[in-house]
Nucleic acid binder design. Structure first.
Lengths: 209, 209
DNA sequence: GATTAACTCCCTTTAATAAGGGATAACCTA
DNA sequence: TAGGTTATCCCTTATTAAAGGGAGTTAATC
């Protein structure tokens, strides 16, 4: 027997899910709200459900923020995002905030309930199409990082790698067996090539995604 | 009609896949090697296949490095990793290097061929179990980032956010409407709380994954 | 054989950062 | 009300970083 919560502003879809819950023997409805605001008012008096279905496009507090609220409150709950938006950045955001499933509209309610078994057997709910979006999002940072440092020489990249660890010029000179002035020289060249003017600008440029 | 390549040192599994290719009408075998070394010798004279199956646990050059080689050579090919290792870091690494599928041993060869349709219809090949590993890997940095900054006050977090953009004390003081000495004060507190001694150490600590 | 690129070292100066001190006002809590 | 936290400001000093200059050594390229 598992419990299930819904946060969805589409009345038709919410009603649909509620009805399906009524038809399935081993699932019972824990709660059903049409906004995050309504949900947050009650969150402290609710028991942690097994699964929460949450819509991303809620009025007011978004479902994206909602994931963070829910994950902060409940550690074990399985959060399944329901949305028509398969933008790779949004998919990634949702998972980063702690979602365990990402279902793209339109889908059959029956299929959704069939797929709950995937969650129960220790898996994540994701369609191959959304998985591909996620993959391409994960693949991209790799490319852009290489793009950023591709214009550097091997030695300059060595210095940058030490810089990324948080070392000072003095520490880098010791680590690489060169003088601090040479470290300074390499870094000067790196700044020109990458169009930055300070260590922190460089780190921000390289480490951001 | 799609073409398919294999790089797998398990003779039995490779033979198995080859036989299945022979049985399926719209798939033909492009190449089959038992090591990356053997494959790399031929890579320049091979046509880009539609799908490559690659084992991670190859002798010599690993399949992980292999993904990078293949992706560098062919932009469109669909790379499917086959391995018994579902460590979340390795899964993430493979995808970051450009894999489009991750199949966990043991599996039925027939299922694998059935699933090729997922790739052909623009999806990624991943089991719910591996997807969950991937999700938890993506979710973790978020947690650790929040852990790192959780001990900070709202104002200190404001300053850190400006720092992450690569701004100087002077620029931050302007951006937040406070004096540079106050910026310095907040940063001093942040350094104590997060146990670092410089801006770059802080950035490295927060931005690394 | 001359040019170029990459790496190395040195000098200098100014700006930015780190870290120590102390102080005040607002707010919340015990 | 006393004590703690937060946010703000000030002063000082030593270190680090940034950016300008010049110069020598390889190794490869032309």
């Amino acid at each position: 027997m598992i419990s299930l919560g819904i946060i969805e502003d589409d009345r038709f879809l919410r009603r649909n899910i509620e009805e399906c819950v009524g038809m399935v023997n081993d699932v019972n409805l824990s709660f059903s709200f049409n906004s995050m605001e309504a949900f947050l008012e009650q969150i402290h008096v609710l028991d942690e459900p097994y699964i929460v279905f949450i819509d991303l496009g809620l009025p007011g507090i978004s479902g994206l923020e909602g994931i963070t609220y829910i994950r902060k409150q409940w550690n074990e709950v399985h959060i399944v995002v329901i949305t028509g938006n398969d933008d790779e950045n949004i998919v990634f955001d949702c998972i980063q905030r702690g979602a365990n499933g990402y279902l793209l509209k339109p889908f059959k309610i029956k299929d959704l309930f069939d797929n709950i078994d995937i969650i129960r057997s220790g898996g994540a709910l994701i369609t191959p199409q959304v998985a591909l979006k996620l993959f391409s999002k994960i693949h991209k940072p790799q490319e852009s990082f290489e793009d950023v440092t591709s214009s550097l020489t091997a030695r300059e990249r060595d210095v940058v790698n030490e810089l990324l660890k948080g070392l000072t010029y003095k520490e880098i000179s010791f680590a690489l067996g060169i003088s601090t002035t040479t470290v300074n020289d390499h870094i000067k060249n790196v700044y020109i090539k990458l169009d930055v003017r300070s260590k922190s600008e460089l780190l921000a440029k390289i480490l951001k995604r």
